[in-house]
Amino acid sequence: MTDSETGLKQLALHDLHETLGGKMVPFAGYRMPVQYPAGVMKEHLHTRAEAGLFDVSHMGQILLRPTRGMEALCLGFETLMPVDVLGLKPGRQRYGLLTNETGGILDDLMFANRGDHLFVVVNAACVAADTEHLRAGLSEVCDVVSLTDRGLLALQGPKAEAALARLLPETAAMRFMDVISAEYQGAELWVSRSGYTGEDGFEISVPETVLMAFAEALLAMPEVAPIGLGARDSLRLEAGLCLYGHDIDATTSPVEAGLDWAIQKVRRTGGARQGGFPGDLRILHELDEGPERLRVGLQPEGRAPMREGTELFASDGTPIGAVTSGGFGPSVEAPVAMGYVAASHAMSGETLLGELRGKRLPVTVRPLPFRPSTYKR
């Protein structure tokens, strides 16, 4: 549904967000709740201590249905990204990266092997471009179906398992990156044990026919609270997770971004499946020789955050990079940031200078994440 005055799309749970007191703001073409009456700080800390419910239905949900068999589909998908698709077993999910011919990142995504098809979740701002890109690259091996009748919820935090298991008991046995189907009020839900907060949790694709009932059932539980975009951003920042369009984009390579862990050995060293993806010359070269710049964690001194766009300098005043994400980390009780710096200045513990309101203030390179993840392995 689209608002005729603003041109913004409305979430299927829009009325619920307003009833809960959500402050609605424009985001990726949607009206989204940035926070609820508790506020960003309390929402963040609640997710770390109990369980937070996020409506992420703005994300794109896409099915890849093979027309020439799953092997052909998987190998075809590998021509679009430097990831081992063929080796992903049914019932498992993996992080992926669509790359361009210069080795930049068109989008990052999650994809799951659901036995007879792949289920892909892409970033909201990239849905149209990704769908077109997938159709152009995979038309000979699959049908690309963009889903418009399902919502997507994320339940995150140390009490997420106990809460979800009351409604879907089979989810308690899942491990990180498992995917299953589960039934709720006669509808089929698709559940993955994953998320964007660094906490244990789940992402659940829910048919809109039962979306309201399912969300309300979760929110009726004492440990579950609604969480908005503000806390989602501070949670993912503490977890050292990239935000597309900020920390990664069409100019940054997976290696520069510190995402080389997502490029499995079979795609990078020897054998018939080495390379063969867009930008492979640059990416394989950077894997061997190292990139000229790297994404790093940054810890500003004092209490003032260094936000996106803050210029970074070496101690001698040489410009060496910029902040791409920054804010206050409620769990670590300090400002935190990420950015790109020249590889020669990316060593943990090195002190740099960030230009903040006309002054150059100390900021220290730190390893990511700022807070250890708690995924259920």
Rank of each mutant, 00 (worst) to 15 (best):
I320L: 14
L368E: 09
P90M: 03
R114W: 10
D247M: 01
A334D: 02
K376I: 00
L45S: 11
D280G: 00
V191N: 06
V25R: 11
R166E: 15
S146P: 00
R303V: 10
A112Q: 15
R360S: 04
A220T: 04
D108N: 09
G21K: 07
G186Y: 06
G245P: 13
G96N: 10
G302N: 09
E140Q: 15
D233V: 06
E71C: 00
E350W: 06
H58G: 05
L241H: 11
L16A: 07
S57L: 06
L109C: 12
A160R: 06
L63S: 13
E188H: 05
L98Q: 09
A124N: 04
I62F: 05
M174R: 09
P207Q: 08
S4A: 12
L294T: 04
L218A: 04
A225H: 13
T171F: 03
G29N: 06
V127P: 08
G22K: 03
G7Q: 00
L211V: 05
I320N: 06
A215M: 10
A225Y: 09
R94T: 13
A342C: 07
S205Q: 12
T47F: 03
T374G: 03
V206A: 04
P26D: 02
Q264W: 11
D280E: 15
I248Y: 04
V145C: 08
L312Y: 14
A250E: 15
A250P: 01
M24E: 05
P226H: 04
T2H: 01
R371I: 08
G302Q: 12
T67S: 13
S205D: 14
V122I: 14
A239M: 08
N123Y: 04
V206S: 09
V34F: 14
A272Q: 14
R273C: 01
S348G: 00
P33I: 02
A343N: 07
I263S: 04
E78K: 05
T131L: 11
L98N: 10
L281W: 13
V56M: 14
D260P: 02
A215E: 13
D288F: 02
R273D: 05
T251W: 10
Y375D: 01
D280M: 03
M1A: 09
Y95D: 12
V206P: 10
L134M: 14
S146G: 00
P222L: 09
A334C: 13
R65V: 15
V40L: 07
T310I: 08
R166I: 00
Q299S: 13
G309T: 10
F370K: 05
A187T: 09
R92G: 02
V191Q: 04
D84T: 11
E216R: 15
S331Q: 12
G69Q: 09
N113M: 02
K265Y: 14
L284M: 08
A173R: 15
A12F: 14
P330H: 14
Q299V: 06
E256D: 10
W190L: 10
A12P: 09
S253K: 01
A162C: 00
P33Q: 03
L284F: 11
L13T: 09
G354A: 14
L147E: 15
M221Q: 15
L211F: 07
P226K: 02
E188R: 12
L80Q: 12
T251F: 05
M338F: 03
K89G: 00
S139P: 00
I62Q: 06
V206R: 07
P37C: 01
T351G: 00
I263P: 05
E292W: 10
D316C: 01
F370E: 08
Q156N: 06
I320G: 07
L352W: 12
A213E: 15
